[in-house]
Design a protein around this nucleic acid. Structure first.
Lengths: 166, 166
DNA sequence: GCAGTATTACTCGGATAGTCACTGTCCGAGTCGCTCCGG
DNA sequence: CCGGAGCGACTCGGACAGTGACTATCCGAGTAATACTGC
C-alpha cells in the first residue's frame, strides 16, 4: 500500500499554479525545474490532471498549464483520484465463493461484509481529502514558510510565468 | 494505490478462526483449502499475523493457528497493518527543499502542509478500520449468510478443527 | 502389560524465483511566435 | 512602412523500456504423535 510519488508532485505543482495570476501558465519544464524532478515523468502526471479537468493545457510556444477552476474548488481528493485512478484500494476478489463450501452465485445476494467495511474506511479517507482544498493549503503554507523562500519563489516565478495576451 | 490481496485473505482467515472454540486451531493447509487459495502464499501472511501478535502458531503434528486474543479485541486495522506494514501510504519526499529556491534544512522547521493533510486523511482511514472488530463482522456475517453455507462450513470445520488435549 | 526411546510424519519459518504495476524515458503531432518577402 | 505567408521552435500527447514491490514457491528446522523394543 504505497501511493505513487506522482501524487506529491502533482499537489505541489497544483499549489504553485494556484499562486499564479489568473490565466497565467507555467510550462511543464518550468514546473519540473522548480521542484527538482524529472520533466518527462512529471508530464505524465500533468497530463492525467489535464485529462481529469483539473488543469488546462495550452500548447505551442509560450504554452503551459494553468488551473482549470479556482483553487478553492480543487480538493486534494480531485488530484489524488486523477493521478492514482478512482478505483478503490481494496478490491474484493470474492474468495468467500470459493473452496469446498461454495454455493451458486445467487446464494450471495448481499455484498461481502469485509468489502463493505473496507470501502467504508476508504470513504472516510476520501472525505478527509475532499475537505482539504488548494486555497486553504496555500494560505497555511504562505503563513508559515520562510520569508526568504517566498521572495525567491516570487522572483523565480516572475521570470517563468507566461501571461497570454488575449 | 492497491492493497495487497493478502489483506483480504488474512481477514477471512481471522474471521474463520474466530468462529472456532477457544483454544482450537486450524492448519495453514486447511485455511488455504477452505478459501481456495495457494497454501504456500497464505502461510506468508499468516506468519506476518503471528509476528504481529494477532495469531498464535502451534507447531508440529495437529498444530495450526488460533487467535491470540478474543475476536472483539482484534480490529481490521490490526490485520491491515500486520500484512501491509505500518508505514503510511503517503511518504513525503520533501521536494519542497529541492530546486532553485531551496534553502538550508534549518529553514523548514514545520512539517510540509501537504504531508500533514495527507497523513490526517490516512488517520481517518485508520480510525475507521480500528472501529471494525472481528466480533461485529462475524455477527453481521452470521446474520445474513445463506443457511446452507453455515451448515456446510460447520460440517467442514468439525472435520478439520484441532483441539489440543491440554 | 508397561515404560522408555527412536522414528516418523506433519507443521510452521525463512530464503528463493516470477510477474505486474509503477517509474522513467523517448519521439511525434500540433500550435504560436518570429522572420522574411512582397506590395 | 505595412500586411501576409512561410518557417522554425517550442509545447503537450501518446507509445516504449527499466525497476521495485507484490505474488508465488520451495526446502529446512522443530515438534508431537506413533510405533517399537526391552523389561
Amino acid at each position: 500500500m504505497k501511493l505513487s510519488d506522482g501524487v506529491e508532485w502533482a499537489i505541489h505543482c497544483a499549489m504553485l499554479l494556484g499562486a499564479l495570476p489568473a490565466g497565467a501558465t507555467l510550462s511543464g519544464k518550468a514546473l519540473a525545474e522548480f521542484h527538482g524532478v524529472a520533466e518527462s515523468y512529471l508530464l505524465k502526471h500533468l497530463k492525467a490532471l489535464a485529462a481529469a479537468g483539473i488543469l488546462d493545457s495550452v500548447t505551442g510556444p509560450q504554452g503551459g498549464y494553468r488551473l482549470a477552476r479556482p483553487a478553492e474548488r480543487i480538493s486534494l481528493l480531485d488530484i489524488v483520484l486523477a493521478v492514482e485512478g478512482d478505483r478503490p484500494a481494496f478490491r474484493c476478489t470474492e474468495i468467500r465463493r470459493r473452496g469446498p463450501c461454495a454455493l451458486e452465485d445467487a446464494a450471495y445476494p448481499r455484498p461481502c461484509g469485509i468489502n463493505t467495511a473496507m470501502l467504508k474506511a476508504e470513504a472516510a479517507y476520501r472525505d478527509a481529502l475532499a475537505r482539504e482544498d488548494l486555497k486553504s493549503l496555500s494560505a497555511g503554507f504562505a503563513g508559515t514558510a520562510d520569508p526568504r523562500f517566498l521572495a525567491l519563489a516570487q522572483a523565480w516565478l516572475s521570470g517563468n510565468t507566461r501571461i497570454p495576451k488575449s
